[in-house]
Nucleic acid binder design. Structure first.
Length: 757
DNA sequence: ATAGGGTTAG
């Protein structure tokens, strides 16, 4: 037999992962230094192997040469494992084991025997039918009272785990001498258990390791083995709560084992998504306290969550802590800050951050180049507050920066800015410009322009533009259609709205619930409740469910059409599916009932609302006050108004004042109305155009011209713009009394109550 | 990083 060839085969390197795990535990120690060098041991090994393979097995015992080589001085574990490993099969190796077992009887040889058996396990694990063979060998080893070497135990646990014999893995572990259950073997077992989904069993083994006085503390490998599966969805559902994960991370931390950045970032992001920012905050700070080396990514995950909660205070605190702990912010960190500032309309502060990040002039020394995302965020922020020109300026700065050219998002933001401000032409110019630059418009560009045109009364241009784009291959999506449907509903063109809905269904575009909601709302607004009900059925057939707002829309629609029974049917349906009405639902009902004069029923609904834990708010009171006014009971309305602010502590708003002022004026109580206006000033409630219009009407009835002039001045002073109603009233009144000059001044924005010099 | 929506009192 060619030995060289054989040994090459047997020493085929194991897969890398296995090697890494197995190598965590040293194999038999090399010979002590004072003994013969390795050369001599390897020469003994070669000689012994030659003899063993040449001599029939039943003659081994009769070979004095063999005995001399192997047993004259007590063989080292290392020698025995190396020899045993070189047998061509596990059964031959087992025969050899039995041979040495009968020749080594002293207590001290037990480690050697353990190692020899380890080699038998190793061979058997690479042979066919190995699971059964290994388990038989395990039993044999036990019967012979040879303790498992640590590597044997590892091999068995991992092997049984791989072939779904996890119970056998556990058996091996449980029967193992507790003193040799070290970190490594526990890692292997935990890995096997987790891979089998036995999270609870794994955590029990882990718990002993995590104990403060543990003799087998977790190492980095334990962290890798435990953390990753806990992040997977199936394990999240297998009953490990977020609280447990937090506790685990911090216990690991006490042993100096920390999750890596990517894992931690995912965990924090998940917590924040699940409205558990506090826990995310705690875990990051715990790790900081334990001295973990944190990186920007993990902090960014938390900053994102805090930003969504609008928690600027803690965002700032975290930034300070990052600096204190030398965690360098990256471009994403700045992106989050700038984005949050922009979304809160604090664009000037956003710009400051932007200038600072790349400046690096100040003591901070940070210098991070902004990328296109940062620019786009900032440009969008400026456009959202109506500062499109500055947005354009930023686009020009983008062009100057290498690798940061404007893209389709940049243009979309700017087009939206100009469109929303009513400058559709400029939006279209930018649209042409982007095409010239070779930037392809996308469906968002399309929708932005369609929406802009619709909002500014150019529905037919919007339709035309959409058709043109479609002919060029740019398909619309559900957003395009909902924009058009909404626009047609708003001009009460239900027929066109329905036509576009059908178009959408025929265009094979993927439809979402919002499109249905838009149409249902439009139909309710138009009082077409049968059609609305029909679309609700369509929505359900399409696999969607009406949401609370949709139900409220329906209830409101039925109330407006005096179909109270239908409204109650909707309420019943909500109850059936377990959807709780909100204050809007109750307010809608209270408004309807009280307007129809049924104040006692309205009162009962209000009681029910309170019983359900909802608080009557300014709208609830407004509805009742309005109803009393409509029913000619202005005194009753005033009583509710006073109760509302004193007893119920609900602060009145402009709408409530407007209702009362309007009614008082219509009721010939102009003085009382004027005193309410003073009351508004005291309470800090701003009058709006409607307030003034109601007053003007009342004053005109009494021809209280001087008062009207005073109010006109107030309007100008508070930059409250007159609308066509104001102009109608004042034009009629003032021309009738020959005061058109005053009106002219008023329109030009000059004071009118003081006589011209 | 960019686009659409509906509800209650005026």
């Amino acid at each position: 037999m060619n030995l060289t060839k054989q040994s090459k085969l047997l020493f085929k390197p194991p897969p890398l992962l296995l090697l890494r795990r197995l190598s965590a535990e040293p194999n038999p120690p090399p010979p002590p230094l004072h003994q013969s060098p390795q050369d001599s041991e390897s020469s003994i090994m070669t000689q012994a192997l030659d003899l063993l393979l040449q001599t029939p097995q039943n003659e081994w015992n009769a070979s004095p040469q063999l005995k001399h080589l192997l047993f004259s001085s007590s063989p080292t574990p290392r020698l025995l494992i190396q020899i045993t490993r070189r047998f061509p099969s596990s059964s031959e190796a087992l025969t050899f084991f039995n041979y040495i077992r009968s020749n080594l009887v002293s207590e001290e040889s037990i480690p050697s025997l353990s190692y020899a058996f380890q080699a038998v396990f190793e061979l058997a694990s690479r042979e066919p039918d190995s699971p059964e063979k290994l388990f038989d060998l395990y039993k044999a080893c036990k019967d012979q009272n040879v303790p498992l070497s640590i590597n044997s135990a590892t091999l068995l646990i991992r092997f049984f785990g791989k072939v779904n014999m996890v119970d056998q893995s556990l058996l091996v572990y449980n029967e193992l001498d507790p003193n040799i259950r070290n970190t490594h073997i526990r890692n292997v077992l935990i890995d096997v258990l987790l891979r089998d989904g036995r999270v609870r069993d794994a955590l029990i083994v882990l718990d002993e390791m995590l104990d403060r006085e543990s003799n087998f503390p977790p190492n980095d490998l334990t962290g890798d083995i435990v953390f990753y599966p806990l992040m997977k969805k199936e394990h999240v559902r297998s009953g490990v709560s977020d609280e447990e994960i937090v506790a685990l991370v911090s216990k690991f931390g006490e042993h100096g084992v920390f999750p890596n950045t990517l894992w931690l970032s995912h965990l924090i992001a998940r917590f924040c998504r699940n409205r558990k920012c506090d826990q995310a905050w705690d875990i990051l700070h715990e790790l900081m306290k334990l001295g973990a080396a944190l990186e920007a990514a993990s902090c960014n995950a938390l900053l994102t969550g805090l930003g969504k909660d609008g928690d600027f205070k803690r965002m700032n605190q975290l930034l300070v802590e990052m600096k204190e702990n030398d965690i360098e912010p990256d471009v994403v960190t700045f992106g989050i800050l700038i984005n949050r500032l922009c979304k809160s309309y604090k664009v000037d502060e956003a710009l400051e951050v932007f200038e600072k990040m790349s400046g690096g002039k100040d003591s901070d020394g940070v210098s991070v180049e902004p990328d296109a995302i940062i620019y786009n965020t900032l440009i969008d922020g400026f456009c959202k507050v109506g500062r499109q020109e500055e947005g354009l300026g930023l686009m020009e700065r983008m062009r100057l920066q290498k690798g940061c050219a404007p893209n389709v998002v940049t243009y979309n933001c700017l087009i939206d800015g100009f469109c929303k401000s009513g400058n559709i032409e400029r939006g279209q110019e930018l649209f042409d410009q982007m095409k010239e630059e070779g930037i392809m418009p996308n469906v968002i560009t399309l929708n932005t322009l369609v929406d802009g045109m619709c909002r500014h009364g150019r529905i037919s241009s919007a339709v035309e533009f959409f058709r043109e784009m479609k002919s060029k291959g740019l398909q619309g999506n559900a957003v395009t259609y909902s924009t058009l449907i909404n626009a047609f509903c708003n001009v009460n063109n239900i027929q066109e709205a329905m036509k576009w809905f059908d178009d959408m269904c025929g265009a094979g575009c993927s439809v979402d619930a919002i499109v249905y909601y838009v149409l249902i709302s439009g139909l309710c607004q138009a009082g077409r409740m049968n059609d609305a009900s029909l679309v609700v059925s369509n929505l359900k057939e399409a696999g969607f469910c009406p949401d609370l707002v949709c139900y409220n829309v329906l209830i409101s629609g039925f109330c407006k059409k005096n179909m109270l029974d239908k409204a109650y049917e909707v309420l019943k349906e909500m109850d059936d599916i377990g959807m709780k009405p909100d204050s809007v639902t109750y307010n809608t009902l209270i408004s309807y009932l009280s307007k129809s004069g049924n104040f006692s029923a309205a009162g009962r609904v209000m009681k029910k609302m309170i019983k359900e834990g909802l608080v009557p708010n300014v709208v609830t009171y407004g509805a009742i006050i309005h109803a009393y006014c409509l029913n000619g009971l202005v005194d009753e309305a005033m009583k509710i108004f006073k109760d509302m602010s004193s007893a119920s502590k609900v602060a009145p708003n402009t709408v409530i004042y407007n209702i009362l002022i309007d009614s008082l004026c219509k009721n010939n109580q102009v003085e009382l109305a004027l005193s309410l206006m003073d009351d508004m000033k005291v309470k800090g409630v701003r009058p709006n155009t409607n307030t003034y219009n109601a007053m003007f009407k009342g004053l005109r009835e009494k021809n209280m011209l001087e008062k009207a002039f005073k109010l006109m001045d107030k309007m100008i002073e508070h930059a409250c713009h007159p609308d066509y109603i104001s102009m109608e009233i004042l034009t009629e009144w003032l021309s009738a009394v020959g005061q058109t000059e005053k009106l002219k001044k008023f329109v030009q924005g000059y004071a009118v109550s003081v006589a011209p010099a």
